[in-house]
Each structure stands twice: as C-alpha cells, then as structure tokens.
Write a protein that binds this DNA or RNA. Structure first.
Lengths: 143, 143
DNA sequence: CTTCATTTAGTAATAATTACGATTTATCTT
DNA sequence: AAGATAAATCGTAATTATTACTAAATGAAG
C-alpha cells in the first residue's frame, strides 16, 4: 500500500480527492507506525491551521473501512497505521512509546483448536514493549 | 479465586471489608464472564440505589491491582472478569455479546521468536466472536 | 465506644470520540 | 470554462467512558 494506491482506492469507491486526505495518507506512509488521532491532528494542524477533529476522525474511520489503514486499540486510544500489505496475514510487536512495529509472521490461530459452537469473527495477537531506541531513552531518563 | 479468597486478600493488604465490595465480588463470581463498568453499576444499583461511578471504578481498579480481577479492553470499553486461576497462564475466546469466555491453554509466546533489542513487557492473544447461545439469538433476530 | 483512616455519594472535570448545520470544495456535466 | 450537485470541511456541541475532588459516613482497632 502506498499513497497513490490509497488515493486510487478512494476514487474507485466514489470518494473525493482532497489535499488533506493526501497529506494524511502521506503522514502514514512516512511514519510506518501506529499513530493516535491526536498525533495525526497535531501534524495536520502544522499545515492546516483550523483543521477540525471531525475531519480527522471521519477520514480515519473511512480509511479503516477501505482497509487503507489498520486500527488497534491501545491504552484507551484507537491507533492507526498504514496497512502493511494486503496479501499476507500477520501480527505486530508494538512499541508502547513510539508506536513502531515489527512483524510476527506466525499466526497463533493456526495452532489453536476451534471451540465447537463458537462462531469466530476475529482475533488479536500483539506483543507490547519498548523498541531499542525507546528503551534506551527510558533508561537514561531514570538516572 | 472465589469471593472469600478475594475478601481475604483485601484484608491482608489493609483494605476494608464492605458489603458493596462483597456484592461486587459476588457478581463477578456468579457471572464468570467479562463485564463492563456499566454492567456492574447497573447490577449494584438494584441493591444500592445511589451507588456512584466513583465507587465502582475505584474498586474495579483496586481489584485489578490485587489481581482479583483481570481486565481487557474491548470495543472502547474496559471489561473485567474474575481472575480465573492464578497458577496457570492462559488466554481467552471471548463472546462479543455476552462476554462469556473459553480458555485457550496454549500461549503463542512460546512459539514466537524474540525480537532482538525489543524489551517485551506484555502480550495479548484473544479470539472474538459469538458463543453458541448468542449466535443463535442473532440468527433468529435476523428473520 | 471512641478514634481514625478508609470508603463513599454526589458531583465536577477530563479525555477520546462522534454528531450536526452551515459553508466550502471537488467533480461531473454541459 | 461555468454551473449543478454531492461530498467534505469547519466550528462547535453532544456523547461516552473514565478519573478526580470534597464533605460526610463507616468499618476496624484499641
């Protein structure tokens, strides 16, 4: 997924091409990590002074619907990242500080026996912690 | 974990024994499933008319700290359930409608190679869907 | 039964998210 | 290129979950 593909997808589904949408997508493309709505807002307001919550949230959920972004819920906030690649199911190791991720290629669903009668609609496997940079930052902050 | 053990744990840690706490714990003991704060509030207000949010939330987080309850975040809400058994690490299959759970005894962390430099602090593996009763309810509601 | 720290009710504050009417803008049509 | 139209946006208000505060009440220990 890249910005152009994402914009094309919007077009295909009858949505409009706006600079704000492009900039939002560019942000997610540049930062390949999970961002909270407020991170997006802050970044966008550098360029578009009066940009409203509404626009941010509406577009974030639109992008998620179209599978341009993937979302997870972390520490009471929804967070979003550019959809990695649509062709390969995977999970994430997530840095709780900066939101950076590593891939986990192995999916535990393969090893988990189905529960009879239970209709499965989704699953979540995530590993949390601190990436090398952020854990060094934390260490030095303590001293 | 049962109500008595939980109350003992409170005592041991210098917290007081109140009827409200006992009733809250009894609720979790009776319903062995995930409950949202508002579910707990509603149930408690049947007995204690003017019971406040504060009391519910304060106790929920106290119980969680003492590992009497375990918490997860689901659809934008924190949910709590009686801690299953402290001696055995496990994960849950969770019904999105009623909160009932089944255990997954296998932990995917065992199969997942550590990421070098990444300091792991936690992980989450959950399977979502609808239990037999709730999926039947949904089917018949559609007709 | 008195003291004292804890707990609680009532309510206000915070934070994330969603909703809405008026205005603006992108796209389509001509 | 200009006008029509549906979608997007702004500014702001409403909603929802959660946390915080103060005065009053209460359980526990001596």
């Amino acid at each position: 997924m890249n910005v152009q593909e994402a914009m094309d997808k919007l077009k295909q589904n009858g949505y409009k091409y706006t600079d704000k949408r492009k900039d939002m997508l560019q942000l997610f493309s540049d930062e390949s990590r999970y961002l909270a709505a407020k991170d997006v807002l802050e970044h966008m307001q550098d360029t578009y002074e009066g940009m409203s919550f509404d626009t941010i949230y509406r577009n974030l959920s639109l992008f998620t619907e179209l599978h341009i972004l993937e979302a997870t819920e972390l520490e009471g906030e929804k967070r979003f990242r550019f959809s990695c690649s649509t062709d390969h199911h995977h999970h994430h190791v997530i840095c709780l500080d900066c939101g950076k991720t590593k891939h986990i290629h192995h999916c535990p669903m393969n090893d988990t026996p189905g529960a009879p009668g239970f209709q499965v609609t989704g699953h979540k496997f995530e590993i949390y912690g601190y990436c090398e940079q952020c854990s060094m930052k934390k260490d030095s902050a303590v001293r």
